[in-house]
Amino acid sequence: MLIPHPLLGPRDAQEFTYLGDARLLDRPDGLAEDAEASFFDHVYLRDNPAGLHRELWFHEQGDRSWLVVTRDTVTHEILGAELARDLVLRNRGAA
């Protein structure tokens, strides 16, 4: 699989390590009332969709950036990738 790195162009997926669902970026508030329940959900539960999946890949053998890759889990087709940092900053700006 080739991952279209937004800065470096297409890179072999072998240069990356895989973490999982991009929802892991939304770390719950540890001081909230329901912190125990929301951390259980965050750490252990996954949507595990068949089809489009937004997921975190770490460019360990490259520029060591975290990417959010959109990939089809049924065909392994990769539809796009962006820097996780850009996504988080954009979401923070929106909120």
């Binding site: 699989m1 997926a13 072998q14 895989y18 999982g20 669902d21 595990n48 068949a50 999946h53 997921e55 990939r71 889990t73 049924v74 065909t75 392994h76």
Partner: peptide
């Protein structure tokens, strides 16, 4: 293979 998949096939690495 190490990433979520429903493909019933793997990749070369």
């Amino acid at each position: 293979d190490g990433y979520n998949s429903y493909a019933q096939r793997g990749n070369l690495p």
